[in-house]
């Protein structure tokens, strides 16, 4: 099945992204993983998310490369390497055990419980006039959710501007341009 192939591709790409010696190759393999995720969304019948994921992926790559250009990666290993590795693997192991128990409670793959979503599917076109049910949910049924999401994005933009803007005041205080 092609979904398993894409998942294998994503896992390989993320391992390469984590273990690469160079920062730029790490970012590019990360973008390969994001492309695999976009394809997986397309196979899982979510074209909205596929478009959004693809576009956001390009933005990630541009911003990350912009951030790490002309910078080096120093590989160091300090004395507590063994302790750190063992504790990390213990943490991941405990997480996997709990996830295995929690996975039994979920419905089987391919047969979701559609208590709320069935209602949306039935009355989506008639009440909102939008043929795309996902857009109908995000912008009409649950519009407050999208409102708060927009607020978060706007706050992030203002935060980035505030973080970046500090540079003028530190380095040339006598100009006072902003």
């Amino acid at each position: 099945m092609e979904l398993h192939l894409i998942l294998l591709f994503m896992i390989c790409a993320s391992v390469a992204a984590v273990e690469s010696k160079d920062l730029i190759s790490g970012v590019i393999t990360l973008s390969a993983a994001g492309l695999g995720l976009s394809l997986a969304f397309l196979i899982l019948k979510a074209p909205n998310l596929a478009i959004t994921q693809l576009v956001v992926e390009i933005l990630y790559v541009i911003i990350l490369i912009r951030a790490i250009i002309n910078k080096d990666l120093v590989l160091i290993k300090d004395g507590r390497w063994l302790f750190n590795t063992i504790s990390t693997f213990l943490f991941i192991g405990s997480f996997l055990i709990f996830a295995f128990f929690a996975l039994k409670e979920l419905p089987n793959f391919g047969q979701p419980i559609m208590k709320v979503a069935g209602e949306y599917l039935k009355s989506g076109l008639g009440q909102t006039g939008s043929a795309n049910i996902v857009t109908a949910i995000t912008l009409n049924f649950r519009s407050l959710d999208t409102l708060v999401e927009t607020a978060i994005l706007f706050t992030a933009i203002i935060g980035v501007l505030a973080i970046i803007r500090k540079v003028g005041k530190i380095y040339d205080p006598e100009k006072g341009k902003r």
């Binding site: 074209p47 909205n48 596929a50 478009i51 576009v55 390009i58 541009i62 795309n132 996902v134 857009t135």
Partner: peptide, 16 residues
């Protein structure tokens, strides 16, 4: 609202 897409994806495409 007809085909897949939406405000966010279109906005990011304009930005790109």
């Amino acid at each position: 609202h007809i085909s897949p897409g939406g405000g966010f994806a279109g906005g990011v495409i304009i930005t790109l």
